[in-house]
Design a protein around this nucleic acid. Structure first.
Length: 795
RNA sequence: GCUUGUGUGGCGGAAUUGGUAGACGCGCACGACUCAAAAUCGUGUGGCUUUAGCCGUGUGGGUUCGAUUCCCACCACGAGCACCA
């Protein structure tokens, strides 16, 4: 038989020695840029899920190369992040050491799968040569007033004295110590992503993302059309501005609700008679974690603001003002007009606190959300169409100058600060005299200090704040004493532009050369996990659009196609995890069955975009198929060409199309059908074997190259042109004509493709079994579809 | 709750400008080889009845000569978002 380990090693070395996968910037061939999300090199090593997506795009990459494209298929490491930092704190080593080790393991594992990455372009986000440019780009944001500092709440563990990500504070408790997480206000660097909401939405039209990916983006941006309307406050000059998508229901607005943090409370505190109670509620709202606000706060809470009243501008009636945490300060204006008859939340609130409810749209139940006839609504009465009522109301609001149309987005500005050690330092310094100053370009990168011992600070600052010799510096403007910003960038920063760097990874003069940007253009095909299709993709698009707007990149949208692969689950159908004991280690699979069998199986497992459960038996089936392909070598004859031409040409056509449309499983089953045909033959030609191993090569690159060489079928497959099919030869001369009576199959006959409808019909009538079912019955209709069937309808 | 996707044999899954449902693989059964087992090869494999047929793609209806495919209602499961006004 054959030794998978020897074969794999041999061909991996061949590809390395011949630089088979090196992409050439500026090459005359047409470019094709394939990208898989670079992994976080965790200590646990490669997951079979990584193998799935890498193999999938590797298959496409190998096909595209053989079709004559200059393929860029790079790989790198997204290596900043909390796990490396925590590991380092615990073991008193620098995180870069841990990262180095993990990358080594990961790389070795990926290489053992024979993925055709161009390793010449490898880098890690943690390389100073890389994060220099991440910092440089941050300064571009700063320079264009797209970065600013603002107070924001962070999840805070009072015991560990550290800020926590939402993931680390799931369930409202600190993941490490179990203490209750609270909200703490902190000054943070922000990127003005909300300015780009409309562009990020519109830009989707210039991409070929599939529906589910586009929807993810659209939901995240969350565009809504409505109006801002001013409500007067009795006895005060202040007006209360609300945002609503339903101005048509304003006659039913019987109270107002404002967010606990709303600034008007401070402005009107002298008029508010229950200010202590209000303050108490504000405190209560602040201590609530995100978890409590969503999970536990099923019941509405709130406090009536005594002493002030608002006026409904259309009914001119006094209405109550309440504060409640179901209104968010960071969306709209932080205040709403509540229409309890026609909004679930307002209804719940009004019933709980006995606030009047006025119906303005006819309907049987309360709250009634649907469309209907307007009542109790002055000039809107009698209208039945929502759109019409909204339009009329908007005109009236603008005529009376009490408000205007307004589009809102859920998309918020990007909180860009992290109080962590293991991230890109934000390259700014603070000078008492000159304020915030960017670090000059010549001083980039701002390196992380080489210390092995660092602990979180008492007050939630980054661990960097404790390292005096690093913090203290001079002001680039006045030369006086200054302090560095100690916050670092989020993990998302480095991954927001890495696809650009791959185009020109060694450049120490620019983040990417213009030449490389112009040559490689967009990422043609980007694959990643479902968990990244919302945020990461949005961040990357935002970052790129910003670079485009300041003239640094040639395309506004950086990615053409984005696909999201399904997960590989354990054999029990559950997500793989150590605790469940259902983890499959790709190393062990390669060891026992070989890389080709693993690759083939992961592509055969099912629909690429869906989750799939691991099955070692199915894997063995794929291995058996490879063995049968190998055994073809035993029965080669001296003849030339294909004995079953139409099957071969059909196979070439289907495999080619299926790979390009990600139907990897059916591509493989088509190859299995071809092999089954060869198995039925006494002997096969070299041409027949060559075409099979060629088509199989993108999936199983090692064994196919070995067979090709062993039987002198031709030059190495990776250096040969992809097989072409002849459309004419895929068409059969005959087909199996189906006879139906009343839609049921009653007989079949092989006929010539050009059999006329008349002949088809008479063949059907002559068929004994058809006669049996039509005998003594009245024939109403005969339908003849050439190439398919004849259906006789009887009564 | 909203948005969205998916429901096909014992299992993973094929097939949709509406036209032979179950390709391919796994598993299983029987047979060959073997002292025996594994591996391999061959045959069969949706269910029910057997010369032929009936039923069958989550459930109920509809359109059609013909529906896994189109339409309506419902059920189940998964994913994403989650008090966004």
């Amino acid at each position: 038989m054959y030794n998978t380990k020897e074969i794999e090693k041999k061909w991996q070395k061949y590809w390395q020695d011949h630089q088979t996968f090196a992409a050439k910037t500026g090459d005359k061939k047409e470019k094709y840029y394939l990208l898989v999300e670079f992994p976080y090199p965790s200590g646990t090593g490669l997951h079979v899920g990584h193998a799935r997506s890498y193999t999938a795009l590797d298959t496409v990459a190998r096909l595209k190369r053989m079709e004559g494209y200059n393929v860029l298929f790079p790989m790198g490491w997204d290596a900043f992040g909390a796990p490396a930092e925590q590991y380092a704190i615990k073991n008193h080593i620098h995180p870069k050491e841990a990262v180095k080790e993990n990358i080594k393991t990961f790389k070795k594992q990926i290489e053992s799968l024979g993925i055709s990455f161009d390793w010449n372009r490898e880098f890690a986000t943690t390389d100073p040569e890389y994060y220099k440019w991440t910092q440089w780009q941050f300064l571009k944001f700063y320079e264009h007033k797209m970065a600013y500092k603002a107070k924001k709440n962070i999840n805070w563990c009072p015991t560990c004295k550290t800020g926590l990500s939402n993931e680390d504070s799931a369930g409202g408790v600190c993941e490490r110590c179990g203490s209750k997480v609270v909200q703490k206000e902190k000054e943070q660097w922000m990127l003005k992503m909300s300015d780009y909401a409309e562009d990020l939405l519109k830009g989707l039209d210039d991409t070929n993302f599939n529906k589910r990916v586009k929807l993810g983006q659209i939901n995240w941006i969350g565009r809504s059309e409505g109006a801002e309307i001013d409500f007067e406050i009795e006895n005060a000059k202040e007006k209360l501005k609300v945002y609503t998508t339903r101005p048509d229901t304003i006659f039913g607005a019987t109270f107002m609700v404002i967010a606990p943090e709303h600034p008007i409370l401070e402005k009107l505190k002298n008029k508010i008679t229950n200010i202590d109670e209000i303050k108490k509620y504000q405190e209560y709202a602040k201590t609530k974690t995100e978890f409590e606000r969503t999970e536990l706060a099923k019941e509405k809470t709130g406090v009536k603001v005594e002493g002030i009243k608002a006026i409904n501008p259309f009914t001119n009636k006094e209405i109550q003002v309440w504060i409640s945490d179901y209104v968010m300060m960071n969306y709209g204006t932080g205040a709403i007009m509540a229409v309890p008859a026609h909004d679930d939340r307002d209804y719940e609130f009004a019933t709980k606190f006995n606030i009047p409810i006025i119906k303005v749209i006819e309907g049987d139940t309360l709250p009634y959300i649907g469309e209907g006839k307007y009542i109790n609504s002055g000039f809107l009465n009698g209208i039945t169409k929502k759109e019409e009522a909204i339009q009329k109301m908007l005109e009236e609001i603008e005529n009376r100058k009490i408000g205007n149309k307004k589009v809102n987005y859920r998309l918020q500005d990007w909180i860009f600060s992290r109080q962590r050690f293991w991230g890109e330092p934000i390259p700014l310094v603070y000078c008492e005299k000159c304020g915030w100053q960017p670090v000059p370009e010549k001083d980039l990168p701002v390196l992380l200090p080489d210390v092995a011992n660092y602990e979180p600070t008492e007050d939630g600052e980054s661990p960097l704040a404790n390292i005096d010799e690093w913090v203290n510096t001079t002001c680039p403007k006045c030369g006086g004493k200054a302090k560095r910003e100690t916050d670092t960038m989020p993990n998302w920063a480095g991954s927001s532009w890495y696809f650009l760097r791959y185009m020109d990874p060694k450049n120490d003069k620019e983040f990417v050369s213009k030449e490389a940007l112009d040559y490689w253009g967009k990422v043609d095909w980007y694959d990643g996990g479902m968990e990244h299709t919302a945020r990461h993709l949005l961040y990357a698009r935002f970052w790129n659009q910003f670079l485009y707007n300041i003239g640094l990149v040639p395309n506004k949208e950086p990615i053409n196609i984005r696909v999201s692969h399904g997960m590989i689950l354990g054999s029990d159908g559950e997500k793989m995890s150590k605790s469940k004991g259902n983890v499959v280690n790709p190393n062990e699979v390669v060891e026992e069955f070989g890389a080709d069998a693993l690759r083939l199986y992961e592509m055969f497992i099912g629909d690429y975009e869906k989750d799939a459960a691991w099955s070692t038996n199915s894997l063995k089936g794929c291995k058996r198929f490879l063995d049968r392909v190998w055994n073809n070598g035993e029965k080669l004859n001296d003849k030339k060409g294909y004995t079953n031409e139409s099957l071969v040409h059909k196979t070439i056509k289907k495999v080619t199309n299926d790979i390009k449309t990600m139907k990897f499983n059916t591509a493989i089953s088509t190859l299995m059908i071809l092999q089954n045909d060869y198995d039925d033959k006494e002997s096969i030609t070299k041409d027949e074997l060559r075409v099979l191993v060629h088509l199989l090569n993108p999936f199983a690159p090692h064994i196919t190259e070995e067979i090709n060489e062993k039987y002198n079928l031709g030059k190495p497959l990776c250096e040969s042109a992809w097989p072409k099919y002849d459309e004419e030869k895929t068409i059969d001369n005959t087909y199996e004509l189906v006879f139906q009576v009343n839609g049921k199959v009653r007989g079949k006959e092989t006929v010539n493709v050009d059999t006329s409808k008349e002949d088809m019909e008479s063949l059907a009538r002559q068929n004994p079994n058809v006669q049996k079912f039509t005998e003594g019955k009245e024939i109403i209709k005969v339908i003849a579809i050439p190439g398919k069937l004849v259906n006789i309808v009887v009564k």
